[in-house]
Simulated scan of single mutants.
Amino acid sequence: MKKLAFIGLGNMGMPMARNLVQAGYYVYGLNRSKGKEKTFQELGGQAAESLSYIAENADVIMTCLPQPADVEQMLTGEEGLLQMNIKAPLIIDFSTVSPSLHTAIETKATEKGARYLDAPISGGTAGAEAGTLAIMCGGKKEVFEEAKPLFDVLGANITHAGPAGSGTKVKLINQYMVGMHTAAVGEALHLADQSGIDQSLVYSVLSNSFAQSKIFDRHYNDFISEDKDEPGFALELLLKDLGLAGEMAKESNASLKAGDLVRDLFENADTNGYGKKDMSVLYQYVKQQED
């Protein structure tokens, strides 16, 4: 049986790794916080002894980490996986970083005899729990086909987008639109408040109109109407993705004027202490500006 390793047992990584265990795979888990590894063991997984142990024993290594620097350090840093005596595995990164970082990692992986895919995900913690994530994959087609049985456990909408970095390009376009929709939801509900219109009425009408969106459904039903802000996906992480989308736009000579304004709005919210809360709190930040 192939041995899998999952590095990064956070809000997304934990349920994804658990789903692989429940599908019958032997899975090592590695996380910065060792309490997460204990939780993973309780779910049927195995705690990895170390990163070097994973390098030497795992047939497939998956990473799901919050920041580009984390991915770079884990895979190509001085003490990263691709500096070790690896078993020539398949490496899959589910994080959202820059397309250029993925092409650089693929080059290094190929030099070490490994196969590499960038496979950023969308669908939030609910999709991770249910195994219904959208997975946008970049890399060689034959490597994608090799990884497809694993993707089928984790997601319901799986797409091979092209060479390494292509999956991330699609994901950043997705995140750009998530940011735009999040800003629209926050400001629209604030406008309703200020105009004396009940939020639930606005949601009911707009959910059956062209303004309907998955982001509106998520933000209103799961967070705003419930007065919750514990992060399913933190505002600071979406801000990071909007920055990456901005870098991609510059590299592609694409002008995103509305996107620049929205990113400024998120930056201001982050500066004012909303960064670690759920991205839906942009509504709270917009509302606070009137107080």
Rank of each mutant, 00 (worst) to 15 (best):
A258H: 02
T125P: 01
D264R: 11
L154H: 15
P163V: 08
V143T: 14
K257Y: 14
P149R: 10
N221M: 11
G123F: 09
V205Y: 01
V178F: 06
S195Q: 08
L244N: 02
A164L: 10
S122H: 07
G196H: 13
S204F: 04
E146T: 15
Q175Y: 04
G243C: 00
A245H: 03
C137L: 11
D229P: 07
Y203M: 05
G167V: 11
G155P: 12
G243T: 00
F223H: 12
G123D: 03
M136H: 09
A211Y: 05
A188Q: 04
R218Q: 03
L238E: 00
K169L: 02
V170F: 05
G123L: 08
M136K: 13
T132M: 04
D152F: 14
A249F: 04
T168Y: 07
G127W: 01
N174S: 05
K214M: 06
L133T: 11
G155I: 10
G124R: 07
I215G: 01
I215R: 03
N174F: 00
I135T: 10
V205R: 00
S213N: 05
A161M: 14
C137Q: 06
L235P: 07
V153W: 15
I224W: 09
Q194E: 02
M177L: 12
Q194F: 02
F210A: 07
M177W: 07
L238D: 05
I121F: 03
D198T: 15
I224H: 06
G196W: 13
Y220H: 09
A234Y: 10
